[in-house]
Design a protein around this nucleic acid. Structure first.
Length: 447
RNA sequence: GAUCAUGUAGCGAAGUGGUUAUCGCGCCGGCCUGUCAAGCCGGAGAUCGCGGGUUCAAUCCCCGUCAUGAUCGCCA
């Protein structure tokens, strides 16, 4: 018999109030972010879960062969916290440092030299190298900062909606059919049947409106589109909501604005260090601006002399131009474009009763990039049957989804927000892949 | 898939139809009482993406190919 009783520890937090430690001893285990050896000792910058802190080794105080240490080694140190003024803005906190009294080497890299240098202010490597060496490149403070901000966006999306009475759902990612059509969906083998990777939680979140009234999901979606651009991924995190509507799609625009304001507020308070390190300016949303799709076409024709009025969608250029227009004329970086043409929206989109050519839908453009698509959905079973028949769709294959509408549904709608896109825009990244830890694109499947 | 560009040491770049291909970072050795993109001195490290062609001679010019990036299509 080998039964063991293990003590239940009350506190496993990695947050440290360094202020209260000034003059006192502390024990820390972390990885060496940077190491500067001088004649009298060394500065050893230690990477911890929530901090990057400077420690000082005085040769006279501790006997340790410094040549045994290297960047990316794991060490356990004991030392006294003392006041300091540190200029390097990748270090946090900067008001103190640790005078090391004891040091133990726990683990070292098996490769020397490391393939890239993560100790400099900028990680000066190409995108391809950055992704090939992801486990290492992510250790650079600026890379870490991007994903700290991404984590706040992800968490606060859920926190805010939970506060507002939304229920978090987890819909399956192995599905029987696609929400958005056939060509751009990944096929998988599901025992003897054919299945797909979900392109969107669309059907499930709609069904769940009949259960909870307000739901959200934060999960990956998969797109088999062979796009090759700086704003596309084949797997990305979709922040989705779906809710019963009281006043139509404007309810959704309001909810999205409130979510974004909450997230931006939280980034401002929790990520001061990351904001400074990345040198970014957070946007502000003081007013909501919406503009009809057809008016966007007219503005671009009149103000920018480009005639795209026959196109039923907005090109990336138009998205940049209209964002530019709203920035100049209305001093806003967020603009909701509404009433997209019915023929460009999926079957479940509700058309405007006053003009069936356009839908009660919207995209949110932020700094020239489309970060959201949403809108009101059909909620009557008959409307689905009529619309799907009109489009020549196989109603039988959507039977399980259509149940929800047979059993009754309120007017409802929702939207999806691309996590990597909003993160990239907030962090001023030129390629969304940089906002993905391990990006999946047309050519990349690893790491 | 289309158009354009790029491919030179572990990483980032410079350069040339002709002897030993240059620089920065990293690495190794030495020095330096507080650094913070540390500094100073020395050293090692490259079949110039791959295949073919032109030429006395190609890393350089031409063709093909592969890879990467940007823009576009499509979308969040």
């Amino acid at each position: 018999m080998n039964i063991k009783e293990i003590e239940i520890k009350k506190n496993i937090s990695s947050y440290i109030d360094f202020n209260s430690y000034i003059g006192k001893e502390i024990e820390l285990t972390g990885m060496i972010q940077n190491l500067r050896i001088l004649s009298w000792g060394a500065f050893l910058i230690l990477r911890l879960p929530n901090y990057i802190i400077q420690t000082v080794i005085d040769k006279n105080k501790i006997q340790y062969p410094l040549e045994n240490l290297s960047v990316e080694s794991t060490v356990k140190i004991k030392g006294i916290v003392q006041n300091a003024t540190i200029k390097d803005n990748s270090i946090n906190p900067r008001f103190c440092e640790i005078l090391v009294t004891d040091l133990k080497l726990i683990s070292s890299p098996s490769i020397n030299p490391l393939p890239i240098d993560t100790t400099k202010k900028e990680l000066n490597v190409s995108l391809d190298t950055k992704f090939d060496l992801r486990p290492l490149s992510l250790r650079h403070p600026k890379q870490r900062a991007i994903f700290k901000i991404s984590s706040i966006i992800f968490n606060e999306f859920g926190n805010f909606l939970t506060q507002q009475g939304f229920t978090r759902i987890c819909s399956p990612k192995i599905v029987f059919s696609g929400a958005e059509g056939g060509a751009n969906i990944f096929n998988i083998n599901y025992f003897e049947k054919k299945a797909f990777l979900a392109q969107s939680p669309q059907f499930y979140k709609q069904m769940m409106v009949g259960v909870f009234g307000r739901v959200f999901e934060t999960a990956p979606v998969f797109r088999a589109e062979k796009h090759d651009s700086s704003r596309h991924l084949n797997e990305y995190i979709s922040l989705d909501i779906e809710m019963a509507l009281e006043n139509g799609y404007e309810d959704l625009i309001l909810v999205e604005t409130l979510i974004l304001n909450h997230i931006l507020e939280k980034i401002k308070t929790d990520c001061q260090n990351e904001i400074e390190l990345l040198g970014i300016t957070l946007p502000e949303i003081t007013k909501i601006y919406t503009v009809k799709f057809s008016d966007v076409k007219d503005i671009i024709y009149k103000k920018y002399n480009k005639d795209y009025r026959e196109e039923k969608d907005l090109s990336p250029e138009e998205e940049r131009l209209i964002s530019d227009f709203f920035k100049k004329e209305y001093n806003t970086e967020f603009v909701f474009v509404t009433h997209y043409p019915t023929e460009k929206r999926p079957f479940y989109a509700m058309s405007n009763p006053e003009n069936p050519e356009e839908t009660l839908s919207f995209d949110l453009l932020f700094r020239g990039l489309e970060i959201t698509t949403g809108g009101q959905r059909l909620h009557k079973y008959e409307d689905y049957i009529n619309k799907m028949t009109k489009l020549g769709m196989n109603i039988e294959s959507f039977k399980s989804y259509l149940q929800a509408f047979q059993y009754g549904m309120p007017p409802h709608g929702g939207f999806g927000l691309g996590l990597e896109r909003i993160t990239a825009s907030i962090c001023n990244l030129t390629n969304v892949k940089e906002a993905s830890l391990f990006p999946r694109d047309i050519n990349r499947l690893e790491p």
